[in-house]
Amino acid sequence: MSMDAPIRPKIRIESVNKSYVIDGQQQAVLNGIDLTVNEGEFVSIIGPSGCGKSTLLNIIAGLDQPDSGSVELSGVTGDAISGDGFGGGRLGQTGYMQQKDLLLPWRSVLDNTILGLELRGMPKRQARERALEFTEEFGLKGFEHQYPYALSGGMRQRAAFLRTMLLDQDVVLLDEPFGALDALTRVQMQEWLLQLWESVNKTIVLITHDVDEALLLSDRVYLLTARPGKTALALEVGLPRPRHYDMVTSSEFAALKSSLMGPLRSQVLATRSGGQSG
């Protein structure tokens, strides 16, 4: 991002705690987590499976309420959930692509992508026209009128991605968006996301298990500890922009990677040993 833009926090999370009943007992999932994402930043979150990454995004998106701590989105601090838990709070304020594609089986691919626009009251025809402008870019051309079951995992994810992006929110939360893709398509999608982000000035939070992906795309990478998750490390990625996939072979990249891999490995090991006792 350009240096002269004023730095304003878009998402600010302070000592957020969350626990769930897991295996019949109350267990902390997030344990005093702190995290800040400035406007226009690309931030990745990496951490062992089950450490609460998706829970954190759920809280930011307003689906879930933290037990304590504060969450600020676009300068507004407040309850995630208001009233009946539908609408209000932070719901509908972010573009949230969840870990599963969650396409509605009874809707065509095109009608799945327009769901958010439709919920906002845009007439179907208009929404479809808008979506059709993007199907080519999202690799869905020719499949618009298929039902989701006919699509490959990667295509389903791209359809879910388009559903998220069509709402054109400032803040985009991506929970392992490239999980179902083969390595090659994955790299393509990463580069494509880079371009997209560099051109539209969105604030993006990406959850990933892929260290290369996190470093290549992000301004900053947060490493979470094993459950209960808290921030173990916040690594500034000083690689120049615009970025390109070739950078993964540079010595700077290698240095960043090794400074992330060590702590990540010890957290993953902590999960394993914790898993054995539990």
């Binding site: 998106a61 689906l63 009946d84 609408g87 949230y96 969650l102 958010g116 919920l119």
Partner: peptide, 14 residues
């Protein structure tokens, strides 16, 4: 329930 969360996150009313 995951689907319900998905549409809730999109801003759906009850």
């Amino acid at each position: 329930p995951d689907m319900i969360n998905m549409v809730r996150a999109l801003g759906a009313s009850r």
